[in-house]
């Protein structure tokens, strides 16, 4: 279960920002019929509730993105993906599939055991918001996002694999020498 206390820093678009949302990790009596505004609730609770702009889902890491779920998620104000443990890597695939296959343009937020040293991979997979665990140092987190200046493989942040980039650069060099 992702835990959220008010002191969790939120990084969005590479800046520390105010978090307008509250994450409801447990599905308690309220959970069955959530009323609080600006709440992120578990996917099944969200699916059962009415669509509202101030109610968002969080996806457990074992979520299967079947057709109905994806259709519903199109209307989500944001999608949070839970990392129950930072070593659970399923969320990376979920984010990529939401972005690349289903074209989700809204915020995808990492929640749960979100640590500095995973952020750069998460960002590459399409996460653009990170609800950091309370003990993480924000400056180090921001710095971690800019460690790598280029990438070998295609991902959400990089449509051009390195082998094509090299081909393009070789053509550009050729053109330059032709002009010179």
């Amino acid at each position: 279960m992702p835990e959220q206390t008010p002191q969790r820093p939120l990084i969005k678009e590479r800046r520390l920002v105010e978090d307008a949302w509250v994450l409801q990790s447990d599905v308690d009596d309220e959970g069955a019929n959530p009323v609080k505004p600006m709440t992120i609730v578990r996917l099944d609770v969200w699916l059962a509730a009415e669509r509202r702009d101030d109610l968002a889902p969080w996806l457990p890491s074992d979520t299967q993105l079947d057709e109905d779920t994806v259709a519903a998620l199109r209307d989500a104000p944001l999608i949070a993906i839970d990392f129950p443990k930072f070593t659970d890597g399923r969320g990376y695939s979920l984010a990529r599939v939401l972005r690349e296959r289903h074209g989700f343009k809204g915020e995808i937020r990492a929640v749960g055991d979100v640590l500095i040293d995973q952020l750069s991979y998460m960002a590459r997979c399409g996460f653009d918001a990170f609800s950091l665990r309370e003990d993480q140092v924000v400056e180090d987190a921001l710095a971690s996002l800019t460690v790598f200046s280029r990438h070998y493989q295609v991902s959400v942040d990089n449509p051009e694999p390195m082998f094509l980039r090299r081909q393009r650069e070789a053509r550009e060099r050729q053109r330059e020498t032709a002009v010179a």
Binding site: D88, G89, Y92, S93, Q118, S120, Y121, R124, Y152, Q153
Partner: peptide, 15 residues
């Protein structure tokens, strides 16, 4: 090619 594709593959760091 496989080395490059797999190096820092962001989706597959926590298999």
């Amino acid at each position: 090619l496989i080395r490059q594709w797999s190096t820092f593959h962001p989706e597959f760091y926590y298999l």
